[in-house]
Design a protein around this nucleic acid. Structure first.
Lengths: 372, 372
DNA sequence: ATGAAAGCGCTAACAA
DNA sequence: TTGTTAGCGCTTTCAT
């Protein structure tokens, strides 16, 4: 009875409803609302009021169909439950929203076919551009995108064959820094724990950095000290636990282990502890990424910080510039990394003076106060 | 020269291109591809071939405009970088995809206004339904949705005023279980660490469960043992560290602390350790959620498991049933929780026999092998 | 068994 | 300063 206005609310309010009520044409409404051409003050105000009253919301679908653009961005990440990606995506959403764009998030779970499927979906939804995060360097489908004049930006993923603007860090250098840090504390037996780099330049570069880091410090590369295990790729913590348990049972213990990322390092930490090793007194551990939890492990993890949020922000910015045809300042943005010294690394003799102390509130800690 | 086919690839292939090449009408193409009405075998095959050849992909935008439905679902979570939500969303994406739906993810960062903004955005994109995860119980905008005959499902969030199908756990019971477990090990001074429940039934219920749990075990409720701190809401680990440091400096230490969620518990673990307390020998800690990292803290966290992936799956399933007008089996789905005993809780005297041992590969561990 | 045409809601070119 | 109208790509009645 009283709510009979509500009864046939199936169809939503369109621009025509507003036009009719305001006694003007649809184009006037459109123009008033989008200020595309001049509309008399009075009319504009009236239209505004009516639109407000009717609770009119322009349909992005219709607008998309007409404009062939939806002001949305497809973001493709391997796995959002990995904090590294989650933190980065957060940076993306923030800036996207500020610029009036929406982010459509897709996870591939490290599956190339899935990536392509998702891509198709996104394309059919007419996103204005794509951001590819990490993932494999099987770039044929990305080339197709470019050929179709679609906008693409890559993050933590280098497209080698052709030019795609990308936001990167210098993985090789960063890994070298890590190794050098370890070496500077007297470590000579430094192991490296990773998964196969199959088509992932990031993973490959870190391994290279590890090797070069050894070389730079006059250390010899020893194949037996690098553990490359496929199982680490996804369920990282859990699997690294397994893998390491085996590794450490062998003779010739390393005095330090450098893990390809923090998740792996965290599993490592636990495995080591369960086997009776004390970190860092008996063995040192380093990670890579500086995800939020890494400050809260025991001991807190010494690691390399990637500016995740800033990477996300930069990627969105780059892509929007591309979409809006602004010319880009640079095609390749290399953001700085940083050595975050916490408590999981000690001098090789475990001597107190060389022990790297917890830097809990170090000013460079990305996760501090939610800012980056 | 050779790639001049590629040169004006701006416009993408439409159904008309396919129709023209196949020498049939657009409606035939549409019908052949969607099998909406019978099309001669031959023609169908030919159309299929041409579509394939041209790489035709129907525009979801145009179809959405026509059908007023986009086979996409808007998922609204407080913060995707919180592993609890990330793991749940992963469950959602999986089932959504299987059913041919796309998930549009939005984060509110615990901001009601933001939630409403996102909602507007999603609505204008004509998602077929919404899933609200957690967040505050300010449900006016959700009521509007319902009034507009839109489909809504809630997860970990009870809409009290009116009927919205929801996927829940029994937070009160689960919290009681936790407290009872602690009590059974002889704990009498059990503290509770949370943020204000302002309009969040989940948070409220856990506090209630804590109180009732005490009562059930003949323990007295002591206001001084419950720490309610706003700062825990977002940056949970970091803040709980701070909050707890202060709390433990006071006299009358509790022998156990029950944290509202695992993230808080992890910060707690660290704070305690930094203050020189041994967990669980000196003090026991329990969490809630069983996020993936909780198995890898030191000691591994004893906690209450929420079936996150299953919750996500169920929510999507429920919503799709709603969208496709199947009748629902039930409006309220309460999924079971489970006590996960690991190493952060000990008997009150720290006696070895009462020490709850690490159940690393306990069969009920959700995160094992990525399955749930 | 298939085609023609209307129309979903919007914007923009063209008129006035 | 504003109105009229075509058309974005698709599905679906209504014809045939």
């Amino acid at each position: 009875m009283t709510n009979n206005k509500r009864i046939r609310n199936k169809r939503s309010i369109t621009i025509r409803d507003v036009a009719r009520q305001a006694g003007v044409s649809v184009s006037t409404v459109s123009n008033a609302l989008n200020k595309k051409r001049y509309v008399k003050e009075d009319t504009t105000r009236k239209i505004r009021e009516i639109a407000e009253k009717l609770n009119y919301e322009p349909s992005m679908i219709a607008r998309g169909l007409r404009l062939r653009s939806t002001r949305s961005i497809g973001v493709i990440v391997p796995d959002i439950s990995n904090p590294f990606f989650a933190e980065m995506v957060r940076g993306m959403e923030n800036t996207a929203r500020k610029m009036g764009f929406t982010v459509l998030l897709c996870c591939t779970y490290y599956d190339v076919e899935e990536e392509q499927r998702q891509l198709g979906l996104l394309k059919n939804k007419w996103v204005d551009g794509f951001i590819f995060v990490s993932g494999y360097n099987t770039d044929d489908h990305i080339r197709d995108l470019i050929d179709q004049r679609l906008h693409v930006v890559a993050v933590d993923r280098e497209i080698t064959d052709f030019e795609v603007p990308s936001v990167l860090i210098d993985n090789k250098e960063a890994a070298k820094t890590a190794v050098s840090y370890l070496a500077s504390l007297g470590h000579k037996m430094i192991a490296y724990l990773t998964f196969p780099s199959t088509n992932m330049k990031t993973v490959e570069d870190r391994l290279k950095g590890y090797k070069e880091g050894l070389y730079d410090n006059g250390l010899e590369f020893n194949q037996e000290l690098v553990i490359i295990d496929e199982s680490l790729r996804t369920n990282e913590m859990r699997e690294s636990y397994q893998v390491v348990s085996e590794f450490m049972r062998k003779a010739n213990h390393p005095t330090a282990i450098f893990a390809m990322d923090d998740l792996i390092a965290i599993g490592l930490l636990k495995a080591l502890k369960d086997m009776g090793f004390r970190v860092p007194q008996d063995i040192s551990v380093m990670g890579f990424d500086n995800i939020a939890i890494s400050a809260f492990t025991d001991p807190p993890l010494t690691t390399i910080k990637q500016p995740k949020k800033r990477m996300g922000e930069a990627a969105i910015q780059l892509l929007i510039d591309l979409i809006e045809r602004k010319k880009l300042d640079s095609k390749k943005l290399i953001l700085p990394t940083e050595l975050i010294i916490r408590g999981s690394v000690a001098g090789v003799r475990g001597s107190e003076e060389s022990r790297a102390r917890l830097q809990f509130y170090s000013s460079e800690d990305e996760n501090r106060r939610g800012r980056d």
